[in-house]
Design a protein around this nucleic acid. Structure first.
Lengths: 215, 215
DNA sequence: CCCCTAATTGGCGCTCTGCCAACTTTGCTA
DNA sequence: TAGCAAAGTTGGCAGAGCGCCAATTAGGGG
């Protein structure tokens, strides 16, 4: 008569459990840095045994990289919509707007993603962040309607990436330090882009070494 | 007759030993990230017992922070010289030149310092880097000869910090990815600054919320 | 209803860190 | 020159975290 004696733990679908653990890890890693978060803590948070983390993700580091990848699905620079022939001003204005909108919604995650800097390189982490930024640069380049993203000359790509640096810094000023209002951040990002494209880029192009035929 | 039986280890002056250990730690932490460098390794490198690190620096983390501080004595943005009344163009041109010069000499260290990003905030490390950048911004603000650095309105400071982001990104493009020549980086940094000051900053100032009396 | 699959646990062994008591070197003094 | 005291240095112990694997258990199919 004693029916099955209340299972000690629940058995979840593979993907479901994986997602659940990933979510806990993401939250913890966003709050504190890598080495001050222990696998025991993540496991406790998720209500599972520590060994299960290794079953799903391998090492602690693998789990961490997975988290970084998940966070980086989010764009990391103003990314304009596809722009069938409209002026750059309009396209960039819209793109920046969507960008700021996204930031407002994902404030915490985004700040954690680009915020934490330290000494010492971590090639794998860097590669993930680098890919995200490079993709954002692609979109920006295409918004200029001069080059296909993959055909753009190095100095153009570099200049756009430099603008990306400006955009991130300005976003932090708005989101974290509050030294810009949202409107001011908007103006800074739009006018910054236009100024760089109109005035700075041509100056860079006139410089010796700009017109290497194939590189 | 057997004179003193060859000391097993040499006893160094306090500061001297400290500097020696710090140098080894600095090199290792610049190459790999925090958790993949062990205290045993640092000790071995310095030719001392592991316990000695703790004697001099406390915990591994304390040693790390000390290293970050040491690295950050180096400026982290174009820092113009004092400029008694000369034009902004000249001052910034000179400042950028010195900046690029410094980068060329300290390539490895600088890249390690600003390069490694990851998930998860580390308040103490962030504070150190933040201070260095804020100081660089002070110098840039003073180069404009409009405000004392400490009196500058928030939006001005924020705009200059945004330029700092551009400067760092552009520097990486030159130093690491080689998508800019040194000349191109120079032009980008100078023209970028001038454009931002001439065109972007006024636009930001016209924006609603720019003229808060005291903030 | 039983059994088989795979999700989940628990614990062993290793490395790393923090700490501290003991030892060695070196300069100073009688 | 021998001895002494202060400071630098060592070596090892205890605790914690991580990687791994064998045993256990939930849950569905035959």
């Amino acid at each position: 008569m004693a029916t099955s004696p209340a299972p000690r733990w629940q058995r979840l679908d593979h993907d479901e459990r994986r997602q659940q653990i990933l979510a806990c890890a993401r939250r913890l890693f966003s709050e504190r840095n890598y080495s001050s978060v222990s696998t025991s803590e993540i496991a406790r948070e998720a209500g599972v045994a520590r060994g299960l983390l290794h079953h799903y993700f391998g090492t602690k580091r693998d789990l961490y990289l997975e988290v970084v990848r998940a966070v980086m699905r989010m764009p990391s620079n103003p990314v304009p919509l596809q722009s069938p022939g409209r002026g750059v001003e309009l396209v960039i204005t819209e793109g920046v707007d969507r960008w700021l909108e996204m930031l407002e919604r994902n404030r915490g995650t985004w700040l954690a993603a680009i915020g934490a800097r330290g000494l010492g390189r971590d090639p794998e982490v860097e590669e993930i962040l680098e890919d995200a930024r490079e993709q954002a640069a692609d979109r920006l380049i295409e918004a200029l309607q001069t080059y296909e993203a993959s055909q753009a000359p190095p100095h153009l790509r570099a200049t756009v990436r430099a603008y990306g640096g400006l955009a991130e810094a300005a976003s932090v000023e708005w989101l974290e330090r509050g030294r810009l209002t949202r409107e001011q951040a908007h103006v800074l990002l739009v006018e910054g882009f236009l100024s760089i494209v109109r005035d700075v880029l041509p100056a860079v192009e006139q410089t010796t070494g700009a017109n290497e035929p194939s590189a």
